[in-house]
């Protein structure tokens, strides 16, 4: 399921706090902020990459499969197919 913006914000904040704790104590605030922002950028890039891949592979495949299924399913079997989908989502 998609993560909401607030969830992501919370996780990014948590990540930054943790990352900050791992930085050497002698780092200045400016250096620290730069390092944190770089780490955050990197995290975003990785997230986006993962998201792109995930949506292409998983959601895209599901959508395609659904369409194929629809195209191949006689109208009178649609109800059963939809029920299956509904159950799989609810499961």
């Amino acid at each position: 399921m998609a993560a909401t913006q607030e969830q992501l914000e919370a996780r990014y904040r948590e990540f930054l706090v943790q990352f900050n704790a791992s930085l050497p104590a002698e780092m200045s605030d400016a250096e620290r902020e730069t390092a944190l922002k770089k780490a955050l950028d990197e995290a975003l890039a990785t997230d986006l990459e993962n998201l792109s891949v995930r949506h292409q592979t998983e959601i895209g495949a599901q959508a395609d499969a659904t369409l194929v299924s629809v195209a191949a399913t006689p109208a009178d079997e649609h109800a059963a197919a939809l029920e299956q989908i509904r159950q799989s989502i609810a499961a």
Partner: peptide, 29 residues
């Protein structure tokens, strides 16, 4: 399904942008 992709993508951008703009470091904290 398409929309979910868009939404999550936008969420990531928005969360990143917001957190980055809010980030402050003071006295190492």
């Amino acid at each position: 399904a398409i929309d979910a992709g868009y939404t999550e993508f936008k969420n990531a951008y928005a969360a990143h942008s917001k957190v980055k703009s809010e980030l402050r470091v003071e006295n190492g904290r």
